[in-house]
């Protein structure tokens, strides 16, 4: 266990979302959604398909503009900023379905992750860090990213996100479409990031694995947060077990 953890509850939140409302035309996607991420902590967002998980992530990442509510990151209001600005502030986003640049090489994908001025300065260190975390990518640096396996593409997506040197990472269903052994590998990697004190916001269908990794959890239903609490409490909660864990 890392030392900082016990005091996490008393620390200022890295990210706080309050009263977020979002709609696609008339279809309401989020209603008064709130969420807090503490330093070094992993927060998981659970819910059925269409509950608003991806909308929440996309609103934080600046891809969608919320109708109301506030997003504060490291004490500053970032509500409604465009996504490249939010990336500049230090929020990394690993989007659903691994949006890698399929026609470019692995190396080019990683270089593009370090587009920002601040990240560019450190790009050699970042590259070393990423390749240390994903030795597999090292072997494939010159390969066209589109020819990587699903698991490797997911590693590349996470690696590219790390190249921007984020202080928080949003992960939207990273285990989607991966074989069970690769899912295990993926969660091992996320655990390593967590061990390096990287705050994570994890949207997942794989409830068991994400609650095992997370410190806190939120359950969304029809765009509302219906349950929130420590991961341990949520794991014990009968309602959750019935509705999402199928236990």
């Amino acid at each position: 266990m890392l030392s900082g953890y016990g005091t996490a509850d008393s620390a200022d939140p890295v990210l706080s979302v309050t009263g977020l409302g979002l709609a696609y035309g008339d279809a309401i996607a989020l209603t008064e959604a709130s969420l807090t991420v503490l330093p070094g902590a992993t927060t998981t967002v659970l819910g059925a398909n269409g509950a608003g998980k991806t909308s929440l992530i996309r609103a934080i990442a600046g891809i969608l503009t919320p109708r109301c509510g506030r997003v504060r990151f490291q004490g500053e209001d970032i509500t409604g900023l465009p996504s490249h600005k939010i990336c500049e502030r230090g929020i990394g986003h690993v989007a659903e379905g691994r949006q890698i640049f399929g026609g470019l090489s692995v190396r080019e994908n990683l270089d593009l992750g370090a587009s920002l001025k601040r990240a560019r300065r450190h790009r050699h260190d970042s590259l070393a860090y990423v390749l240390d975390l994903f030795p597999r990518l090292h072997e494939r640096l010159t390969q066209t990213a589109g020819t990587l396996s699903g698991g490797e593409q997911q590693m590349l997506a996470i690696g590219r996100c790390l190249m921007a040197r984020p202080s928080l990472i949003l992960l939207d269903e990273p285990s989607q479409g991966l074989a069970p052994t690769l899912v295990r590998d993926l969660f091992a990697i996320l655990a390593r990031l967590k061990a390096r004190n990287m705050p994570l916001v994890l949207v997942e269908q794989n409830v068991q694995a994400s609650l095992a990794l997370a410190d806190h959890g939120y359950v969304l239903e029809n765009g509302r947060v219906v349950l929130a609490g420590s991961a341990a409490d949520l794991t014990d909660n009968m309602e959750i077990r019935r509705a999402y864990l199928g236990l």
Partner: peptide, 24 residues
Amino acid sequence: SRLGYYWLAVREDQDAAAAAGVNV
């Protein structure tokens, strides 16, 4: 050039490029 890289990134996936910090 850097701009050329950005073009390719936007061509490949505009949203991912923005998420990587590219001003699309």
